[in-house]
């Protein structure tokens, strides 16, 4: 019990080091527990599909398990795991794009956006809030993926510009300009909500 308690107190980097050195599955499980929800939120906002999002996050965790040795100490664990999840999400988008070209299935815009966690909002305002959230999610899906991922990481996940630059392997200036363009596009798409 005390051993488990000690592990939970360890930082992400310490836990992965432990997992790398001793193959300690408990350390791995703690990291999974810490990152499953942020990754789910990130991937869902990027892909817009709950089921696909679960599969991507599962795959991210399995990649982490299989390629634990490719993680280097000098990097932050969060940036490393976000990079894996982001790459898998992008691959999924590409696959879907190919499928959409070949099939006659409804496009992303026509699909119903699934939004959860309604309990936070009061019942009388829940309907309005849900509509707004749906609109924001739809607008997010309409902006370019390069801008979308940056906006999600910064404005929804709350990561710093430096962290995003490390995850996306681009310069700080690129991150800032992409976020700015993403926000501008988003605001344009949601002009009915944000009337100046």
């Amino acid at each position: 019990m005390s051993h488990n308690q000690n592990l939970t107190e360890l930082s992400d980097e310490e836990l992965i080091k432990r997992f790398q050195e001793t193959d300690d599955l408990e350390a791995y499980e703690i990291l999974v527990r810490r990152y499953k929800d942020p990754l789910m939120n990130y991937v869902y906002r990027f892909v817009g599909d709950r089921d696909v999002c679960t599969d991507i996050v599962q795959d991210t965790m399995i990649k982490f398990y299989l390629n634990k040795d490719s993680y280097k100490e000098f990097a932050k664990f969060s940036t490393w795991i976000y990079t894996i999840a982001g790459n898998l999400a992008k691959n999924e988008l590409k696959r879907r794009k190919r499928r959409n070209i070949l099939s006659l299935s409804p496009t992303e815009d026509e699909k119903q956006i699934q939004v959860e966690d309604k309990s936070i909002v009061a019942p009388d305002r829940a309907a309005d809030s849900n509509i707004k959230n749906d609109m924001i999610q739809k607008a997010l899906m309409k902006i370019k993926p390069v801008y979308r991922e940056m906006v999600i990481l910064r404005d929804i996940q709350g990561l710093s510009y430096e962290e995003i630059a490390e995850i996306k392997k681009v310069s700080l200036g690129t991150v800032k300009s992409r976020i700015n363009r993403g926000r501008t596009q988003l605001q344009k798409l949601l002009k009915n909500i944000y009337k100046e």
């Binding site: 709950r50 966690d117 404005d155």
Partner: peptide, 13 residues
């Protein structure tokens, strides 16, 4: 917009 983005419901596993 940023306030609304932060208030978006969190998706949980």
């Amino acid at each position: 917009l940023l306030a609304d983005l932060k208030e978006l419901p969190k998706i949980k596993a």
